[in-house]
Design a protein around this nucleic acid. Structure first.
Lengths: 337, 337
DNA sequence: CTTGGCACTCAGGAAGCGTGAGTGCCAGGG
DNA sequence: CCCTGGCACTCACGCTTCCTGAGTGCCAAG
């Protein structure tokens, strides 16, 4: 249906439009790319491409602009991820390697992505669901108050206060701690939650009320609110002069964790790179933007996702390269720590 | 120098300009406020106010707009903090009370401030410097790897990985833990850092290399990077149609932690409310904005600051009321937990 | 000191115009 | 059959021009 040259024309239109941000006409196309045909020929091709919905003209007698469908074809068949330069790779590695603690890793990742792509970066905290318990710590802050700290293999540390029904002594706490660690160490959180449920049996009756309080906190909070946190940055890049339209909607969507979750969730959940273009996006306010996302994680597992958000008119190959590289390095870092 | 009526005029100009975002003229002034004089009289007053630098006209034959100096006078002498309605107060309290953990308190505070004021909210994490150590936990993750967790009275939990020079056993860790807690519990972090420095003496020579590694982490990371974290939100409110100018600068400043720190630091460091208007701001990109900030903390102590950032043309009384109320409630919540 | 009157200024919108980039179509040529 | 050059056509954008009205400063009288 679309011969070689028409595809080349589409590719050229996308590339030119992305770099100039102006509708591209037949003449400038033949000039800038070495298509060995005349503008008139290109015009015919463009007419076909328009008929099929890949490009459109903002008004009669203006050049053409890619549609979402056009970008989609471009991404799927006409472009390849552009790998980062080795200098960039090294910079990423060293910058991430300096991080201490999960918070810092996530923060640095956001900055990195935002700077590399000059767009908005979105990073989800590693999911607790798939993490493995490394240690559980109970700290007695007061006779009736404990702090529960759960440390996972991805370096994530979750903490919750628990108000106890009864007073407790250090000894009680030590026993409970030992019990928890013996039972849960090395287990996935998903499993751990189930195990905890059955654990109350092994607690001497005297301490059951307190233990129950602790257990319920572990189960409820850790299991349920698990992949909630999302961090973003680079919003200054949204203030590019062309993009003022709809900026408010985009910022609103970004600040709404729930919305972001939904968007990331809709992105195909393989660990592969995924691109969501314009109106493909489920969220109203993001209909003028594209999202390039990827899972990341240590080993074979996808722990969470990260993404870059920008105008549909973005440099897809470059962005994809950056997202994919960063995702890989973050995974590596998490594995080490 | 400025008689009663001129001050009233200035107040009226500020109020009208804030609510309409348009230069205000003499006629509309007499209409909207019941000044019992003619427009001509007001014009004379305005001429004086302009001569003194309190208001200015964007161009000949336009109304007047307050200058930074005008806002300053307004804030200092012509307006009073507008207290929140009791419904709002209750809403704040219940919303904050639902928070668990420091992260959540901070996050909720940001949202609250942003929504109440319809502007950008900035909240600094409680300073570690003034916090008191509640507990130190060492977790042995591997023979040569420890996790150090420091829990402070404000609920802040700091964690760092430590790579040890030598292998260690659970017993060694237990000893070290006991030593640290015995020496540091209840101390301020500032003191604690000094105490740790002298503590190496009390460690048996065999374990000194490891202990030194742990101590240096505690000292270096906790003492130095103490008030670093700042969170903000409500950036969508910046996208108000009038404010597009300079938006990029503002977003950039917000994303630069260091810059934010500096701004908050320059705000007078009493626990009182402080207002920084337009060009008073030390940061270049924030010269078109005002910052209403307040310290917050539990007991008499200021642990950190929070603030609201908006266009100089903001509702100062309302913003001040919101900031001050939120600061108080956050302090209370922190004290409880 | 206040007031009404009056001449003046000037931003911003409406209207008109010209230009040029870009198009669609067509007829002729490889 | 596809490519090409030619040609008439369209229309956004930038320019100028004009007009209007809100708002001013000044002055002389109350």
């Amino acid at each position: 249906m679309l011969d070689e040259r028409k595809l080349a024309v589409l590719r050229a239109v996308v590339e030119d439009y992305v770099s100039t941000n102006e509708p591209v006409g037949s003449k400038s196309l033949v000039d800038r790319h070495n298509l060995d045909v005349s503008p008139a020929t290109i015009r015919n091709d463009m007419a076909v491409l328009e008929e099929q919905g890949y490009i459109t003209q903002p008004h009669t007698s203006a050049g053409r602009v890619p549609t979402d469908k056009g970008y989609r074809l471009f991404v799927d068949r006409l472009s390849h991820m552009k790998p980062l330069s080795s200098a960039e790779r090294r910079a990423i590695q060293t910058y991430l390697a300096q991080a201490y603690g999960l918070d810092d890793v996530v923060m640095r990742t956001v900055r990195l992505l935002a700077q590399l792509t000059r767009q908005v970066a979105v990073v989800q905290y590693p999911s607790l669901t798939r993490s493995v318990v490394r240690h559980i710590e109970l700290v007695r802050l007061a006779p009736e108050k404990l702090l529960v700290v759960v440390i996972t293999d991805t370096g994530r540390v979750e903490q919750r206060m628990v108000d106890l029904p009864d007073r407790c002594e250090d000894d009680d706490v030590a026993h409970l701690r030992a019990l928890l660690n013996a039972s849960l160490d090395g287990r996935r959180l998903t499993e751990a939650v189930k195990i905890v449920a059955g654990l109350i049996e092994s607690v001497p009756p005297a301490g059951r009320a307190n233990a129950a309080a602790v257990f319920s906190v572990i189960m409820a909070n850790l299991a349920e609110r698990n992949e909630e946190r999302i961090v973003f940055g680079g919003t200054a890049n949204l203030a590019a002069p062309d993009f003022s339209q709809g900026l408010r909607d985009v910022l609103e969507a970004l600040e709404e964790q729930v919305v972001l979750m939904r968007v990331l969730g809709d992105a195909t959940d393989e660990s592969l790179l995924s691109v969501m273009i314009g109106r493909e996006n489920p969220v109203e306010g993001l209909r003028t933007t594209s999202l390039v996302s990827s899972g990341y994680g240590s080993g074979g597992e996808t722990l969470a996702k990260l993404a870059v958000l920008g105008p549909t008119r973005m440099d897809y190959p470059g962005t994809m390269g950056a997202v994919s590289a960063v995702a890989r390095y973050v995974g590596e870092i998490l594995m080490e720590s």
